[in-house]
Design a protein around this nucleic acid. Structure first.
Lengths: 214, 214
DNA sequence: GAGTGTGAAAACATTCACAGCT
DNA sequence: AGCTGTGAATGTTTTCACACTC
């Protein structure tokens, strides 16, 4: 029943993008062609077809793809229907931004807890949640079976927080602190460094028209 | 004098990472080997040597790389020594987080203005800057020769803001709104979608040890 | 006719393995 | 002996181009 072939990393990275393209489509459209999707996502149309073919035979020759089917299959494949729980550690500006960010809930992630080490922030309400001390992290992780930890603390705390999350059984971490976390193979760590993005932009800045890295 | 060979996109994406690794090195270390850097960056050591070889012949056989030389060359290549000016549009939680984020200044970017359309925010002081109305965007862009616009507004405003920035002569945009911006070839747009990162993590979540995409 | 799915080709990226320098 | 720089091998990703289906 379930497709068991491994999806290439390059394709996995584009699936969320396709999902976003689908959202941006006319609300009452039913079908979409690889060309239309490709233009929105700014990739080649053969790319779109190849990527989607990893999810099974979803299209209809001569017609295109059914939008709803496509959305469902991508969500299924990415594991967005499992309803993963996540916690955010660090409730500064960035943590608050993430807590308010509707995109997480829309995509099936439930933020079930906000944590901070600063006593002044504890018990504050942010985005409908009460900020808790780190000492209650373990209890939350067990209670809600938290799968994902989001780190939005200052750099110097990030490694300790990561270790703490891992010790609470969290096996997946999204790190926004600009620091390299030590990682063991059984824990997935993705880091987003906001200034690295700017540095990459910078390389393409002075030069004439150059294809950007995605 | 200047190396004119084009650097592969995959390498450009790793250069900021190497820069970060260098920062994380022992302060009084002078030299570093490709193996040490590779371990920090979690890549293959041949990868490091190949990447660095695009910047010229920087190492010494049998010895390694001089840290200071390496740092200088990477910064030069990425264009981090040009002192680009940037503005942030949208001073909500995310915009404030970005404004406070020291990493930009450290890496050579100067945030010269914060803009918002919300009258309640205008004239607020954030990270040492006064929030200005969008009507003064053009004046700032001319005055400071702004090269980069950072968009941290809600999605529905992002396209208008992008158009506005472009009309002010900004040719490079870093977009944090989860929306696909129309782009003309003469403008570089990089989008960071915080929820897309989480979705990619999600794919690797249920499965056993799998190599993550970088 | 329109648009998918996919072999085959081309382009790109990574890794091996080793000659060559210090 | 130690470590770089790089040809050659391998692996991955993208793109072409067309048989095939609706």
């Amino acid at each position: 029943m379930k497709e068991n072939k491994k999806i290439p990393p390059a394709t996995v990275k584009r699936l969320p993008l396709y999902l976003q393209c689908l959202d941006q489509l006319n609300k009452d459209a039913i079908g979409v062609s690889s060309k239309t999707l490709a233009d929105l996502a700014k990739v080649n149309d053969a790319q779109v077809r190849r990527d989607l073919s990893y999810l099974g035979t979803l299209g209809t020759r001569g017609v295109g793809y059914d939008i709803q089917t496509l959305r469902n299959q991508i969500q299924l494949e990415l594991g967005l229907v499992e309803g993963w729980s996540a916690v955010i550690v660090g409730v500064g500006n960035l943590g608050s931004a993430l807590a308010h960010y509707g995109g997480f809930r829309d995509k099936g992630f439930g933020i079930v807890g906000l944590f901070d080490s600063d006593n002044k922030k504890i018990n504050n309400q942010v985005a409908g949640l009460v900020v808790k001390p780190l000492s209650s992290l373990e209890e939350y992780c067990k209670k809600y079976n938290v799968a994902i930890g989001i780190i939005a603390t200052p750099s110097r705390f990030a490694q300790d927080v990561a270790d703490h999350l891992i010790s609470c059984g969290v096996r997946s971490i999204l790190n926004f602190a600009p620091v390299l976390l030590k990682n063991s193979p059984e824990v997935q760590i993705r880091s987003v460094d906001l200034s690295q993005e700017l540095q990459i932009l910078s390389y393409y800045l002075d030069r004439p028209v150059l294809k950007a890295v995605e």
